[in-house]
Nucleic acid binder design. Structure first.
Length: 235
DNA sequence: CCCTGATTCGC
DNA sequence: GCGAATCAGG
């Protein structure tokens, strides 16, 4: 597989929306998680909350190479391990660089001292949800707040009309049928939901529930946001 | 062990 | 540019 513009676009969107590299790789298909990460970095996408980078809260996060072990295996460059004393002399002093962690946190309240946690999920606060095909849905930005009518919670049982037998193709789309994609573009059975839309929305009631997710109170918000994409194969 | 992302380096 | 191999933290 090659990195077409489309695939790169999807990669970017998902990466920025907080999807894990694995999810992205799975979604794209034909590429490994590593490929995704590698590509993301090559694209200049910034590292997101990575489990492995907490170089301590004090150490300047600069010079990532020097820290770990830049020359581990393969071609074993310099001798073996620095068993001998005199640690690595290089390491450009790197001054404290306190990095005045912004986020003044107006009301400190009962905040644990060692818990900066301003925005772990980062942009998450802005993104309402991720729609089908990897398109991000955002809040007030370029799209008015979704969810004008009816309270968000509680979805309708969703009744898949009996006759979707004849898949709804792109050509069958209209203002009145649900445009939620079923499957993945390119696949032989790729089609659209085709169910009657929820008046005022491009999707049926069921899929509106997927497309428009209420911004839950900060409290109870579990893991991730991204789910669609047909990732876990919804159907 | 599983997961995660980061990095390196041969291709 | 690509991605497997490898590393390292959770």
């Amino acid at each position: 597989m090659s990195w077409t513009d489309e695939r790169i676009a999807t990669l970017k969107k998902m990466w920025e929306s907080g999807s894990t590299a694995s999810q992205i790789a799975d979604q794209l298909g034909g590429v490994s998680r590593n490929a995704v990460i590698g590509k993301a970095h090559r694209l200049g996408l910034k590292s997101r909350p990575s489990p492995v980078k907490a170089s301590d809260g004090k150490a300047a996060k600069k010079s990532p190479s020097a820290t770990a072990k830049p020359a581990p295996k393969k071609t074993a460059p310099a001798a073996a391990k620095p068993a001998a004393p005199a640690a690595a002399p290089r390491q450009p002093a790197t001054p404290p660089a306190p990095t005045p962690a912004p986020t003044p946190a107006p009301k400190a309240a009962s905040s644990t001292p060692s818990q900066p946690m301003p925005n772990p999920s980062s942009d998450l606060s802005k993104i309402v949800s991720v729609g089908p095909g990897g398109f991000l849905r955002q809040g007030p930005g370029d799209q008015q707040a979704p969810i004008p009518p009816a309270p968000p919670r509680r979805l309708v049982p969703a009744k898949p009309s009996p006759e979707i037998a004849d898949k709804t193709s792109l050509l069958d789309l209209s203002d009145r049928v649900c445009r939620w994609p079923m499957g993945h573009p390119g696949e032989p059975d790729f089609h659209f939901c085709g169910e009657a839309v929820n008046p005022g929305f491009p999707y049926c009631v069921e899929h509106c529930g997927r497309a428009y997710q209420a911004q839950l109170p900060r409290g109870a918000r579990r893991p991730p946001p991204p789910l669609p994409f047909g990732g876990p194969r919804v159907r």
